[in-house]
C-alpha cells in the first residue's frame, strides 16, 4: 500500500515539476573543474539537474570514492590544487577579489601556502584586471592567470605553487 500510494503521488509530483529536461547537454564534456562544466541545463527555471560527465551510469562497477582524476583531485597542495580551487570557485573568487577579502581568498592563501596572508586580498584586488581580462575567460584561463599572478607577487610568499 505504501508503495502504491507513494508511486501515485510521486509520479504526479514529478509530472508537474519536471518538464522533461535535457539530461545530456550538447557539447558537454570534462572541461576542467569549473562548476559550470558539470552542470546541465535549466529549462523554464524549474528543473535543475546536475549530472556527471562520465559513464557513471553505464559501468557495472561503480567506485565513487576515488580521487585525483581529471585534474580535479584532492591531492595535496600542488599547483593542481590551486588551479582546481580557482576553477571551481571562479565566480566567488572574482567577487572576493573585487572586494579585497572573503572566504575564498583566505582559503586560496592556505592552499597556495602564502606566508603573508594579510596582503593576499589587497594584492589580488589591485591586480583584478590583470587576472581577469574579460567576463568570457574560460575557467582554465582564470586558474592559470591567477596562479601566474601569485607566482609573480613574491611579497606574498606563496610557496605551494609548484
Amino acid at each position: 500500500m505504501k508503495y502504491v500510494l507513494s508511486a501515485v503521488a510521486a509520479i504526479a509530483m514529478m509530472a508537474v515539476f519536471f518538464p522533461t529536461s535535457e539530461a545530456q547537454a550538447d557539447g558537454y564534456g570534462p572541461a576542467g573543474c569549473g562548476l559550470g562544466s558539470i552542470v546541465i541545463g535549466n529549462k523554464a527555471g524549474i528543473t535543475q539537474l546536475f549530472a556527471g560527465t562520465t559513464n557513471g551510469t553505464s559501468g557495472n562497477q561503480s567506485f565513487g570514492i576515488t580521487f585525483g582524476t581529471l585534474n580535479c583531485g584532492l591531492d595535496g597542495p600542488t599547483s593542481g590544487a590551486v588551479a582546481n580551487f580557482v576553477e571551481a570557485n571562479r565566480s566567488a573568487i572574482a567577487k572576493d577579489m573585487a572586494r579585497g577579502s572573503g572566504e575564498t581568498i583566505s582559503t586560496l592563501a592556505t592552499i597556495a601556502g602564502c606566508s603573508n596572508r594579510a596582503a593576499v586580498g589587497s594584492t589580488l584586488q589591485k591586480n583584478f584586471r590583470k587576472v581577469f581580462s574579460s567576463a568570457a575567460m574560460s575557467d582554465k584561463q582564470v586558474g592559470l592567470s591567477l596562479l601566474n599572478l601569485l607566482k609573480q607577487e613574491k611579497a606574498l610568499g606563496c610557496n605551494k605553487l609548484s
Partner: peptide, 21 residues
C-alpha cells in the same frame, strides 16, 4: 523526491575504477 539527481561529483570520480574484488 529530494534525490540529488546529481552525480555532481562524477567529474571527480570513476576513471580510477578498479576491477571487482
Amino acid at each position: 523526491m529530494y534525490v540529488r539527481l546529481v552525480s555532481f561529483f562524477a567529474v571527480l570520480s570513476i576513471t580510477a575504477c578498479a576491477g571487482a574484488v
